[in-house]
Design a protein around this nucleic acid. Structure first.
Length: 221
DNA sequence: AAGTTTATCAACCGCACCGTC
DNA sequence: TGACGGTGCGGTTGATAAACT
């Protein structure tokens, strides 16, 4: 039999990678290989581990389960509150939200949102994934409203600038010139009406409160 | 106790971006 | 400069545990 997936584009079809739940043995091998080679070149990692998993699957397993310092379960009230606030701000950018919650993965937060928080927000709404667009403050921002792509640029700019503030790299000019010449809005938010959280520390909850203050002012005006 | 429904979460899928050649 | 491979992201699926009838 084995007619699981016939899509030509799916590498699993031709290579017949195994799927489904990971065994303890697979976890152990994966951890071993990553300890030696590091968490990169996932295709190579998968090959070195010697089991029949694709690199992508290995990456996911590592990031969501095996990685050190992962917290599992028991999302605290504080974390929940932060997720709610961040979701209001960012929408379904789970990886960005996870980035503000040390030890939590995007997958876990996404699952938690879909199973718990989306119901809290919209009790009448049928449970399930949140809508792709239009739910976040970022996406409602006037400068960005006409372009989904622009949202991506904005988020990327935020990421880039966060990286820059960590210490070393870039000047403002590099960001605006090298990667992204297309966006027509002012990404650095010099003009009004836009909460710039990009310089805030990931672990500092204060900026979230400041955002909410900003948010309520924005709605009053 | 057995059958059915609902909730949860690990894993998969497809797409888009980025870096390298 | 375009093709290609690697990577990351968000949406979705499927297995199974828990709750309910």
């Amino acid at each position: 039999m084995e007619t699981i997936n016939n899509k030509e584009t799916n590498p699993r079809v031709s290579k017949e990678f195994s799927k489904g739940a990971w065994t303890a043995e697979e976890d152990r091998k994966l951890a071993e290989v990553i300890a030696v080679h590091g968490p990169k070149r996932w295709k190579t990692v998968a090959a070195k581990a010697g089991f029949n998993r694709c690199g992508k699957s290995c990456r996911l397993r590592w990031l969501n389960y095996l990685r050190p310092n992962i917290k599992r379960g028991n999302i605290t009230d504080q974390e929940e509150d932060l997720i709610l606030r961040l979701h209001k701000l960012l929408g379904n950018r789970w990886s960005l939200i996870a980035g503000r919650l040390p030890g939590r993965t995007d997958n876990e937060i996404k699952n938690y949102w879909n199973s718990h928080l989306s119901k809290k927000i919209n009790p009448k709404q049928k449970p399930g994934p949140a809508p792709r667009k239009g739910t976040s403050i970022v996406e409602k921002a006037p400068q960005l409203a006409d372009s989904n792509k622009a949202n991506m640029y904005h988020i990327q700019a935020i990421k880039d600038r966060s990286t820059a503030t960590d210490g070393t790299t870039t000047s403002e000019g590099e960001h605006s010139s090298s990667k992204q010449s297309t966006p027509s809005f002012d990404i650095n938010g010099a003009d009004d009406d836009f909460f710039d959280f990009s310089n805030e520390s990931p672990l500092n909850l204060e900026w979230v409160s400041r955002f909410l203050e900003f948010d309520s002012r924005h709605h009053q005006s």
